Simulated assay, not measured.
Amino acid sequence: MFLANFLIALREGLEAALVVGILVAYLVKIGRRDLLPRLWAGVAVASLVPLAAGAYMTWGPYTMTFAAQEILGGTLSLLAVALITWMILWMGTHAAGQKAGLETSLAGAVDRGGRGIVWIALLAVGRESLETAMFVWATTQSTMNTSAVVPAIAVVCGLATAAALGVLIYAGAVRIDIGAFFRWSGIFLIVVAAGIVSYGIGDLQEASVLPGWGNWAFDLSHLVPTSGIGVVPYTLAVAVVNLNFMPTWLQVFGWVAYLVVVVPLFLRATRRRPRPAGGTTTAATPAPTDKKATTQ
């Protein structure tokens, strides 16, 4: 549970940190440090989004009937998968132009006297925050862990690590291959999402929204370790990829279909994406001039 949520928060947090770094660097480059407080105000408001969304999704369903909880849980799980899948594929095809797009939007806001900068930061960072909240909630629900303590600690640690990396990258103290990081973390999230698809389908089957509950594809529940060394890897597999030793046929179909469709799309998207100069990220720093760019 900790590892899955830590990596989700790290990936989403690092993306948000890079976005903030781009916005900060642009304002510094054009000499408008006076607008930085508005930018940070938008970031602060966006940071509250996952808290509100997470609180509602965690405690709100308990006032509902069992069937309503299952319907809400299954629907939100599939919605979380849809959002994270869209984000992964969008990043694969549009990451190269993200900096230019953000700077264009910010330039327009600056030309209008700084109005709208709060909204740019709010939308850019808020999207990552909401996706993180929904995906972490979905992974927590899929492991049937009613405690919010471990996921909360994992998210805080992941976001703190992402924020520290973002600052170091902005300062030029750390250079990492962002392309490779997002590629491998994207594959990891796709595998996690496939497990959530299976879990969401199971919730909807239990609520009789989808047919097939009780039609097990196989039953290996007798192999579930209850003691000894096998408990640790089993618990880790359940927390990270939603390992299920007794799925329905529809759950198996959903898991396989998701991977068969999304993995090739993701690999195609990342192959098309141009690599940044030098293979590492300097997204938070101004682009070099043409003269410097043409010299080795």
Rank of each mutant, 00 (worst) to 15 (best):
V174M: 12
W216K: 07
L220N: 02
G166Y: 05
A217G: 04
L210W: 08
L223I: 06
V167M: 12
N215I: 10
R175S: 07
W184Y: 15
G186L: 12
V197E: 09
L243T: 03
V174F: 08
S198L: 11
G179L: 11
A207T: 07
G179H: 13
S221R: 05
D203A: 03
G200Q: 10
H222Q: 11
S227H: 14
V241L: 11
G158L: 05
L220P: 00
P225N: 00
L243R: 02
S185N: 14
V240K: 02
F218L: 08
L236K: 01
A163K: 09
A207K: 11
G228I: 15
G172Y: 09
V224A: 07
W184F: 15
R175F: 12
L189W: 04
A173C: 11
S198N: 08
C157A: 07
H222L: 12
S221W: 06
L159S: 08
G158V: 03
V167A: 09
G166E: 03
F188T: 10
G214R: 08
G228N: 07
D177W: 02
A239M: 01
G228L: 13
I201T: 10
V156Y: 05
V241W: 05
L165S: 07
V174E: 11
I229Q: 08
T235L: 03
H222K: 10
A162H: 10
R175E: 13
L220R: 02
A237P: 02
G195W: 00
L243C: 05
Y234S: 05
I178A: 06
T226D: 08
I190Y: 02
G172P: 04
Q251M: 14
D219R: 06
L220H: 03
I201Q: 11
R175N: 09
L220S: 01
V167F: 15
N242V: 06
S185T: 15
S221G: 03
A154V: 00
N244D: 14
S221H: 06
L189C: 12
A154I: 01
I187M: 13
N242C: 06
P247N: 00
G230L: 08
W216D: 04
S208C: 02
G212F: 12
A194K: 01
V197Q: 07
G212Q: 12
Q251D: 10
V240H: 06
P225L: 00
L159G: 06
L189Q: 14
A160M: 09
I169K: 01
I153G: 01
A237L: 13
P225C: 00
A173N: 15
E206I: 06
A173Y: 15
F182N: 13
I176M: 11
G179C: 04
A164E: 05
